[in-house]
Design a protein around this nucleic acid. Structure first.
Lengths: 204, 204, 204, 204
DNA sequence: GATGAATGAGGTTTCATTCAT
DNA sequence: AATGAATGAAACCTCATTCAT
């Protein structure tokens, strides 16, 4: 009696395994065998759910992207204040724990692969755009509350988001200079720059 | 009488070819045959100068990195004023022309490969550190001249450099949102933020 | 329900093929393709069972050695009398039929390869030692029965075994001088030398 | 001004180098580069004197064979008595010093290569035959002097020579059982067996 | 005579993919 | 649904050989 859910379950099992392997060894070095081993399945089974290696890795890229976004959205819901939300959001992107670092590594692989693959460009366009939109919206709200410096919210979102990306890459690459602590300081500095003086706001 | 050695010439010829291929297809898809074809040599000749494919690509990564750094240094020499230098420097990193875009793509590949390769980590540590140091020094000079906002120059350099990295990745990935024009706007905004008030400078 | 594993069967199929090729062309000229063709498999399949060419050939060397030893042991069991056993044993080593000649050629390759390979030295030590031990034991028994001349049985075994090796090499190399017939004569001469005087046996 | 002797000199230099490499690594693993390095020449120079690798190795095989034979002949000249000559001869074949061991290894390679190469068969036929003839002649003389047991001298030579070959192979392969000391004991035993009782000879 | 840069054919090895079970 | 044995295309790499200097 085949359970209808088994397919979805197996797919997730395989995608999770694929992300683990990509994070550990990179797409270049990933072998279908590795993914099968991580998922405790055979290569045959992996191919039963994903026609080609390319399909598998693309699905894994998407899964990783979407999953991270969901996790961030749930973090935002816990903070009503715009400035707090921004801080919490930035905080959640520091590659402190293994899970976050792994997700970052998979993103980095996605971007580099997207340099040569139109399908992945679209994926990035969609998910990265959504991310940027969320940040811009928070900034907009913060500006309305007088907590954040005025200026084009999308431009400010771009400043913030790309800086985080750049910092994270250096942190992940293991630069001794760019520790998690220093990454946080740099982020905090930028967030301060973007804060409006609450006193002045009150006076004005 | 030893013939003038062609070694240096051939090595550069091959490294240039390797960077072209990495930029076009990525490390993952690079075949030694491709490099040989680009360099108008046989695969045997490529292996005559580089023992393994890995050696070849690592040397290409280093060549690309160092070469870009040299090019930037020469740009700096043309601008005496610190704020101009900073602008010129940032400007030179916009992936406008093919050459700059190609160099960026190779960096991106270097970073992602460095996630799994200690040797490349060291390479990044060295060259990226030098780059960051140069920016920090310009900022320090700018501060001394009263043209740049006070604050830890290294921290400010990190803000600037990582933001450029993050923006460039999105621009290179071909995000419709992140065009060269928008990248420039975002950079200009940050540079403005980092400028000291000219009024104060006049007073001082 | 696990399918009956074909592994043992395939491995033997491949080892037999490898020995055929080694015997025909020598290790130096052996290509994995040849072995695959002889085994009616693809090169991929050969590598499915043996990681490297070296592993394959070493396994073949061992298989050849052990197999010959087993065959000899079964021959011995048919002869109760020590002197008969010795004769039968020696007889079974004349490279008359193709199978025996092939086995000899593979041994010769093993020895020469062992000159440069510690793993094969160990293999030779083990199997050759066992062989020498068996002969020494027969000699010991023959001495107890008064059929074989006295003296250190191991030393006598060494005389016999190494002479057979040396003769076989010349016979296999195709020396016109060292035919199978002459090889047999030389062996018989030595065996006679090693026989105890029948007169004494008559007296006793 | 080309010296006429330079060619002969270079050829010997290269052949000696080839034998060194064969002895160290075996024919299978020999690369022309290795020979060139040992001879302190370039690969181009090696090919200037030997058209192909095969030519080079065959010439080296022949050089090694002939050279050893010459060395043995000069040893014989020092011993007038047949039994002494036999002992001296056998003694000179124990692979004690590096030079003798190296020559043995090259012979072993020659034989194994000869299994698949008619030209080398002829070489072996010629040189090995000469060697066997020399031993047979000594035995004949010894028999005439009443120092050696009667019987077909060629057959006795075969017994002796093949036993030495077989022992040497095991000694060279590095068998812990077959040390130089034990090899000598076995040889001495056989030579004793082949000795005629001097007393009886005197009486007869 | 001598060199060593350059070649390219040929071999081993890897691994995504297939398919009978 | 799942397996894993088998495949073969494709890639890296080696190295004898050539040839301009």
């Amino acid at each position: 009696m085949p359970r209808p859910s088994v397919e979805a379950e197996r797919r997730e099992q395989i995608l999770r395994a694929a992300c683990e392997v990509i994070s550990e060894k990179g797409y270049k070095a990933l072998r279908v065998t590795d993914v099968a081993r991580h998922a405790k399945l055979s290569t045959g089974s992996v191919h039963y759910y994903f026609e080609t290696k390319r399909d598998l890795v693309h699905a894994a890229f998407e899964w990783n992207f979407s999953r991270s976004l969901e996790r961030r959205k749930s973090i935002l819901d816990r903070h009503p204040n715009a400035r707090d939300r921004l801080h919490a959001f930035v905080d959640s992107y520091l590659p402190r724990d293994d899970e976050t670092a792994a997700a970052w590594r998979v993103w980095a692989e996605t971007w580099v692969e997207a340099l040569h693959d139109p399908d992945l460009r679209k994926l990035n366009e969609r998910i990265y755009g959504e991310w940027r939109g969320i940040i811009a919206e928070i900034i907009r709200l913060g500006q309305a509350e007088g907590l954040i410096t005025p200026g084009d919210p999308v431009l400010l979102a771009n400043v913030l988001v790309s800086m985080i990306d750049g910092l994270a890459i250096q942190a992940l690459v293991g630069s001794k200079h760019m520790t998690i602590g220093r990454m946080r300081s740099v982020c905090d500095h930028l967030l301060e720059t973007m804060s409006a003086e609450p006193v002045q706001a009150a006076i004005g």
